[in-house]
């Protein structure tokens, strides 16, 4: 038992990413309300952002702003600097996520104006009885 706890604690950020991902996945597949589905999608994307950001992090790492002279002379210890690339990638991924959410919200608005509800079952019922 203690071994498992120690194992989880050692890599807790990756465990949180997996748990978040499963929560998001469940909301997208299991929930019948469109807003909850969208929120699930956002949680899902956030978990991936957490995954990427943790891959760049280092224990005791400082911000990756380097002194030019030191960098040119090779005097920078890479183990003391956080890897900035995953963070930069995630900036782009956040922008993509926000755009998708925006489009989804706009589409949802049109669905609500048309059917007067955001419950998937009720919408499908209304489509069938039309």
């Amino acid at each position: 038992m203690e071994g498992i706890v120690a194992e989880i604690m050692a890599k807790y950020n990756y465990w949180i990413y997996v748990v978040l991902m499963m929560i998001g996945f469940y909301a997208m597949i299991g929930k019948r309300n469109l807003v909850k589905k969208l929120l699930g999608m956002n949680i899902f994307q956030t978990s991936i952002i957490l995954f990427f950001v943790s891959t760049g992090a280092k224990k005791g790492g400082s911000i990756p702003i380097l002194d030019k002279q030191a960098a040119l002379q090779g005097a920078v210890d890479v183990n003391l600097v956080v890897n900035p690339l995953p963070h930069v990638l995630m900036l782009t991924a956040i922008v993509v996520g926000v755009s998708v959410t925006g489009v989804a919200l706009a589409v949802m608005l049109r669905i609500y104006r048309k059917y007067g509800t955001l419950e998937e079952d009720e919408i499908l019922h209304k489509i069938e009885t039309e």
Partner: peptide
């Protein structure tokens, strides 16, 4: 179409 589009988004 909006509902189909939403399912596609997800």
């Amino acid at each position: 179409a909006p509902l189909s589009s939403f399912n596609y988004i997800i």
